[in-house]
Design a protein around this nucleic acid. Sequence first.
DNA 1: GATGAATGAGCGTTCATTCAT
DNA 2: GATGAATGAACGCTCATTCAT
Lengths: 191, 191, 191, 191
Amino acid sequence: MARQDKRENIVLSAMTLIAEHGFHGASMSMIAEKAGVGIGTIYRYFESRDALIRTMYKEKEDRLVTLLLADYPIERPVRECFFHIGTGVIDYFIHNPLDFRYTEQFHNSPYGVEHRRNRIFASADKPDIFIDLYERGTAQQVIRDMPMVVFFNLAFAPIIWTIRDHVLGFLNLDALLSRKLVESCWDSVKI
Amino acid sequence: MARQDKRENIVLSAMTLIAEHGFHGASMSMIAEKAGVGIGTIYRYFESRDALIRTMYKEKEDRLVTLLLADYPIERPVRECFFHIGTGVIDYFIHNPLDFRYTEQFHNSPYGVEHRRNRIFASADKPDIFIDLYERGTAQQVIRDMPMVVFFNLAFAPIIWTIRDHVLGFLNLDALLSRKLVESCWDSVKI
Amino acid sequence: MARQDKRENIVLSAMTLIAEHGFHGASMSMIAEKAGVGIGTIYRYFESRDALIRTMYKEKEDRLVTLLLADYPIERPVRECFFHIGTGVIDYFIHNPLDFRYTEQFHNSPYGVEHRRNRIFASADKPDIFIDLYERGTAQQVIRDMPMVVFFNLAFAPIIWTIRDHVLGFLNLDALLSRKLVESCWDSVKI
Amino acid sequence: MARQDKRENIVLSAMTLIAEHGFHGASMSMIAEKAGVGIGTIYRYFESRDALIRTMYKEKEDRLVTLLLADYPIERPVRECFFHIGTGVIDYFIHNPLDFRYTEQFHNSPYGVEHRRNRIFASADKPDIFIDLYERGTAQQVIRDMPMVVFFNLAFAPIIWTIRDHVLGFLNLDALLSRKLVESCWDSVKI
DNA sequence: GATGAATGAGCGTTCATTCAT
DNA sequence: GATGAATGAACGCTCATTCAT
């Protein structure tokens, strides 16, 4: 098995186990077994269990940010950008439910404490499209006057919760409902 | 120390530790030490760790439901009821931040799986004011056509996330902001 | 409840629980509850759990020895005395299965280590009818030449084991079988 | 320390502690310490404490059964087979006193409940030489008419009890006494 | 005298991490 | 580089015993 394959196997196994059974249900030996590698091998790629969990999160976050940035219509009106992000997030998580469940597990754990919720779409070395949205919206007076975190919560909390309901099978978040949902979120922040 | 005091000490210690450090950060021996009692003593009041965690949750949930029901303006328009619940929830959690953080930990844990998110304001033996809201709002065509869980998410996800931000010190959720927040949530569901 | 009643309740509860569920299945609180007394009360009558267990055994042993001595035909031939003891033991335990099971539990436990098996019918302050049997039998040359413990084992081990089988329901040790069994034991020691 | 040595150390430590102090006197940490291994190490070789106890018993039982079967004179008269088993059992336990004491502890414990006493020489996948003895003896009318368990008890209870006396140092069960003992047992069942 | 709430040592078991191979 | 056997601190929980009431 090539080096890169090994690492990917480890990450996939850890992701799957944690997404499905929580952090408790993913001991290092379970991850190793599922990945088809020795326990010690994991420590060649990750310094510790904590590092594995944190690194995996970072990678997933980066991937989503990259995707959203790829065709971000920065020249277009705030509203359009808002819809781009909202539907983009839904689209990504609907098609990557493992990532969603892992992200949820991460946020709600001792790890998540260090990680502000509204930083979900941010990355250290990349432009923060969400801050851009808030600042342009405020400057152009198309969104209401409120702290950025409140804006963020209104914009994304219902989306995240509804994705969870979809992933858990409580409803079917199809294109139509998705559109309606983002529309509702927009209505809560627009002037 | 009186019997009732002991139980309260145990509950307070457990709540605090779990709220601050998660379920992992609250072992029975830590809870006992913080409460100033022996480990075995906890087992006189709660059958097991699970029972302690679940009972504490039930008690907190019941307290909130009771409070919200106390002066619920059931005869008044849906919009007014919506505001009653929204501001009531904020008010309760702002004044009981420990309860809020504990509730959050509970929901996002294996325990929470059994407990649907939209059951947050429900209790087995009490009328479910949230379902009442949704059904009346739909019947009177004052809220948009959408599944109940989506309605629930739009109505409360931003509130819950913002309470968290307040509790964690990221913003100050005062009366004015609270009002604005609930208003925004209403705007996302009203027709 | 009178003092003597309390003590008897405690002993009966302890006996029953230990006989039915072993030493493990009889915690002090279970014994107290079954006896209808407080836990602390047991310590008024017995110094410790060990003392309770040992005292109970002593009492049961004494009772059996007293019974066997009551009409022991000391003037009659060794063979007759042998049958007297053999059938007496069977008779006693068949009618007091709780005592039998308790005795068995006791013998096979750390407590039993201090208690030689062939002392089963002996008591510190009473004549030992078993030693009498062995000494007369040897002197009169009606039993084979062998160490006393071997004589004891041949005489009683099959009886004890068969009583257990009866108590556990593996066979029915009626009067006929009882007679045959003692006869067989006699055949193994007689010249 | 080699893998096999480690397992043997664990088994020897557990056997010794249990033989000498009963199941209570052999906690996992005591076994580990005596074996010179970590507590967790035991769990690499045995799934649980129960599994350790049961596996050890099975291994000892199998060893004895194999030994007795090795040169079992199945073509010879019942009496000869009876002596073969009787002296074989004595011989085995005299030379393996630890096995004897462990076996005793096992039989007289919650574990022993599942294990009928008369199955002592039986094994799931091997012929049961004891049943063979009883059936041939009955068919040929060389042993008395009695239930099998009674036959078993007469045949082996005195032997087992006498081995215990030997192991505990109360007598010296040498070849001569051994012969006499088995002879006496035979006299109690033969016609 | 009687009680039972309180205690904490000790139980069996798990699992992140190390390190000899 | 890769392995997994070995480790032991820490977990949830039990229960004989004590002692304030």
